[in-house]
Nucleic acid binder design. Structure first.
Lengths: 205, 205, 205, 205
DNA sequence: TATGAATGAGCGTTCATTCAT
DNA sequence: GATGAATGAACGCTCATTCAT
């Protein structure tokens, strides 16, 4: 491969990435339907038509954004939980990592939390394998914990995973839409940990 | 008030209700942005223009639909939990009632679960008091339970409420988008009850 | 039918007709592909969107224009040849009527002569029954004349019809594109008559 | 001139010719307006931009294609009629040669027959001298035949030429668009010969 | 010379909203 | 009040053309 083609490839990859980043920002700010392709182009510093060199359509742009970001999120999550020994710790890490990512990348979180749902409509066909993978990470922790006896087996792991995801997703949404008086979302992860591990019921000593 | 005006009022109220019902159906099926006002008019059996006699705009129609339905939902929920003595039972009832309503009114659930989120964007300003009321019912159960000593006080009631809402909302979404192989969403409410009251951690003894 | 609906129908029919007339003018002047829908709307004195209340698309507008005009042309032609006794006279009348219509309605002729051909591409599927009908009128004259012994039977009637149509169509084109120095197209019909009936070859005697 | 520049020249001419050939194919298949420059580039095996090294624009490409092909056609026609003694034979040869070329080069015929007409619009200004030359060949045969007494002088030669061209052009079109059930276009040239020389009228013996 | 990624003006079409009836 | 034909602003996408390499 020549130096030239390397540069070209780099430039192309860079442009694609810039468009994705711009889409993230604009979708987060305006929502998918209200966002204009030309806004994304402007934000990315490219011409409108350029977007269509890298993506088939506005829909495709959203789908690719999801896949790209969810891949990174899954990878980050796998790394984060790897160092924990106990499955209860893995669960706490999962929650804290998720909420930390929301805090660190609010635009991305906005898209994943708000737009993912709306687009579930037109992603139903696409069936979003990356999101399934994310849920799988969580379900696996729980299933393994149940097998090892650390966790109670009453609730099936996939259902429990879905519930826990719902909790952190809802907290993320509340925080994202919270406007000015934002609570400390990372601290909130302790509450979630407590809730899912020990429940609300008063323990008799 | 003449008989005539009574009839007129009834007819008016009826037409408004029919439009709301049509909007519920169409928004559920197509999503807010993809839904056409003329579809709603057709579904309601009125002319396109008639909708604008009862609602300021398409946005307004969505907002009014929320307020109207959430009022009913709140009322139904208040009634449902009234007969329980224990706050733990109230919590279980809340979850079961919520998921039963999802099963009974999937169109409405679709709108509240999917469209509410997306529209959070343009409802941020509107700040959705009815949804706040719904959360309040849940938070009050928890706060009261904590005060009475039934429930552990570690997690602040509003945060716990939000978490629990997130769980049931996510389950609702999973069920709604589930297509054919729908799990038994009402049975799932036992899992949620177990999860939020006793947690996942294995109890010794 | 009420007076109201009569008016409405009349107004609608009128608007559709106005759009067709505008399309005729604009397609004639600019050609189908170069013509803009908004130009047609402006020429018709309606809003852009109004066109789509009466026609499915720009393509559909062209197709409907063809069908509508060719129907009238066929009818006019049938009337014109009805009064002739001899088939040779019918042939001369056909040619003269065709070229007279070209002179009287140059915009229409432009569309039928120039755009019909180009659009043959996308009308191949549509197979243009109205044009076939027009050719059929001509072919029938010839076939009947051959049967009656007035005309020579050497050339199959459909082929002869096609040839004669080609002649007048080409003359029409030459005249339409002639710019300023337009020859007398109606007088030219005598030439065509002479050519198709007696041929170019010098008659001995 | 160096060997290098010779090669370069040859390569250049070759590339230009390849582009023209590609344009012929693509214009024939899709029509001028629907054809994409990039399709032509692909068909020619060159980059999009390369086309603009040899042609000013898409329009120019069409014009150059016409001029180039019509030159060849005129030349071929001159050769074909050269060997005939009688002008009636020259006429028959003209018709047969024209239709044979259509059969041998349907893509070219498609462009000349269909696109030429549509583009008459934007070739009006250009006034297409090559096409005039082609007509001139035909008109000269007729004029000479009239002078020599072989042909009747009633119809002015240019008009007669136009008519005859119209006939063969229309037959060509019918054949090109005929789809599957294609008639024998070369045999049809006998009909045309009969028609233009002896006419349709029944000759009294 | 050749390339092909990038450009951006331009257009067909949609649809929320209005208003004459 | 009720209608629904008409409106026209708005937008996703295309593609002829350019130009840095």
């Amino acid at each position: 491969m020549t130096a030239h083609s390397l540069t070209a490839k780099a430039s192309q990859a860079d442009k694609r990435a810039r468009i994705l980043r711009a889409a993230e920002t604009v979708f987060a700010e305006h929502g998918f339907f209200t966002a204009k392709v030309s806004q994304i182009a402007q934000e990315a510093g490219v011409a409108d038509g350029t977007i269509y060199l890298y993506f088939k359509s506005k829909d495709d742009l959203l789908i690719c954004l999801f896949e790209s970001r969810m891949s990174e999120v899954c990878e980050a999550m796998q790394k984060a939980i790897a160092s924990d020994e106990l499955h209860t710790d893995k669960l706490r890490t999962f929650v804290k990592t998720h909420l930390s990512m929301v805090q660190a990348h609010p635009h991305l979180a906005e898209v994943l939390t708000v737009e993912l749902r709306q687009s579930a409509k037109f992603m139903k066909e696409h069936s979003n394998p990356k999101f399934a993978e994310y849920l799988k990470i969580l379900a696996t922790i729980i299933a393994d914990g149940q097998k090892s006896g650390e966790l109670d087996g009453e609730v099936p792991a996939p259902a429990a995973a879905r519930c826990i995801f719902g909790m952190v997703d809802e907290l993320a949404l509340a925080w994202l839409l919270g406007g000015d008086q934002k609570f400390d979302i990372v601290r909130a992860s302790d509450w979630v940990g407590s809730l899912i591990l020990r429940g609300l019921e008063r323990k008799k000593s």
